[in-house]
Simulated assay, not measured.
Amino acid sequence: MTTTDRRIVWLLIAYTLMLALLPLVLNEQAFQWTFSEVGPFEQLSIAGWLGTAVIVLLRIRPLRARLGLRLVVPGVCRARGRLAQAVHRRKLPEEQLLP
């Protein structure tokens, strides 16, 4: 295991502990909003998936740097634009939030 791998493992352990402690720290209303469709975890997960895809394409399955960037950057920009449009157009009623 490399130093980077160890850092990633410690980061994942810290993130898991933070998630486990959130129900104890937040009140019910704040907890429901945090994990709802419009809350930060749901909205930031999109960026997380896009970032993971970039890491997989450029690091785990390395393409030549130029080819990889030519494929990834336009795709990420298009995905971000479509995401912004979807978020802007969608309005969620209260009953679609987590109970």
Rank of each mutant, 00 (worst) to 15 (best):
R61W: 04
T2K: 15
E95W: 13
G81H: 04
R66Y: 08
H88A: 13
S36Q: 06
A14N: 03
E28D: 10
L67R: 09
P99D: 11
V56E: 09
L12H: 12
L83M: 09
A14R: 02
A79D: 09
P74Q: 00
T3H: 08
V9I: 15
P93N: 04
W33H: 14
M1K: 13
L26V: 00
G51A: 03
V87N: 00
R82N: 11
I55R: 01
R7K: 15
N27F: 03
I8Q: 08
Q96I: 14
L69K: 04
F31N: 06
L19V: 00
L71C: 07
A84N: 06
V38P: 00
L17Q: 12
V25M: 03
S45N: 12
V72T: 12
P74E: 05
Y15T: 00
E94S: 12
R7P: 01
W33A: 11
D5C: 07
L24F: 14
L57T: 05
L63N: 11
L21I: 13
I13P: 06
Q43W: 09
P62D: 03
G39C: 01
V9K: 11
T3M: 09
Q32F: 03
F31Y: 13
V38R: 11
A79R: 01
Q32C: 09
P23D: 02
R64P: 02
E94N: 15
T4N: 06
A47Y: 15
A53Q: 06
L12C: 09
A53R: 01
T16I: 04
E95P: 07
G81R: 07
T34M: 06
L58I: 05
L44E: 01
V73I: 15
A30L: 08
L58W: 01
Q29T: 12
E42H: 14
L17Y: 05
R78D: 09
E95M: 02
A86H: 06
Q29R: 10
L97I: 07
E28A: 15
P23C: 08
I46W: 13
V72M: 05
A14F: 03
R6E: 08
V25H: 07
L44M: 08
Q29N: 10
V76P: 01
T2Y: 08
G75Y: 05
L92A: 10
R61E: 10
I55K: 02
L97K: 15
S36I: 02
A20T: 15
F31W: 13
R89C: 10
R80Q: 00
F31T: 00
V76K: 04
L26C: 05
V25A: 02
V87Y: 01
T34P: 02
V54E: 03
D5A: 14
L63W: 12
L58F: 00
E37C: 04
R59M: 12
L92T: 09
L50P: 07
P99K: 14
T52W: 03
F35N: 13
V76Q: 03
P99R: 15
E28M: 09
M1V: 08
V25W: 03
G48I: 00
Q85M: 10
A79L: 07
